[in-house]
């Protein structure tokens, strides 16, 4: 069997994404803090990536879902668009997440296209630029 392709390289890949708050915030977000990179803000174009360090990888474990994610550290830029959308946004890694292994095999679809596994989390600013916050999960295409 061929090894799964490395995700996080130049070639686009599909994945599920959700949103998370970070930095100063109201309600349950108040305790979120600046994330693993220290500079994460809900109102900025930031994201969380499951393989920012060994300690991060130990928590998120994307390998358990068969995803071979490249190490990408704080400040790395990804380009993200909704799998059925036309707007592309740019986001910078500012935190560790999501916990991919809790949702192995989960799928989100739009108009006949589907994406599997949670490999990226976006701040509310980034998520709402390509989707609606009231939907907790959406399929996206990611390129580096």
């Amino acid at each position: 069997m061929a090894a799964p392709p490395d995700v996080g390289a130049m070639a686009p890949t599909t994945a599920e994404t959700s949103w998370f708050c970070c930095g100063a915030g109201w309600g349950p977000c108040g305790s979120a803090g600046g994330g693993a990179c220290g500079n994460c803000q809900s109102g900025s174009r930031h994201c969380a990536w499951p393989n920012t360090s060994d300690a991060c990888f130990d928590i998120t474990r994307p390998d358990r879902c068969g995803d071979n994610l490249l190490r990408r550290t704080c400040g790395h830029t990804f380009y993200v668009e909704h799998l059925c959308g036309t707007t592309e946004i740019a986001v910078q890694i500012a935190d560790c997440g999501p916990q991919t292994d809790l949702w192995c095999g989960e799928q989100s679809c739009c108009s006949g296209n589907c994406a599997t596994n949670r490999l990226l989390d976006l701040t509310p600013s980034a998520y709402s630029a390509i989707g609606n916050l009231s939907s907790g999960i959406m399929p996206v295409r990611i390129r580096s």
Binding site: H82, G85, T86, C109, S111, G112, N132, L133, S134, S135
Partner: peptide, 22 residues
């Protein structure tokens, strides 16, 4: 209903025009 809508071709044909949430 929102999930079913988002999976439809009808939604995809106008997704680029939509500005608001529901």
């Amino acid at each position: 209903s929102v999930q079913r809508l988002q999976k439809s071709d009808a939604y995809r044909s106008v997704a680029g025009l939509l500005r608001s949430d529901l």
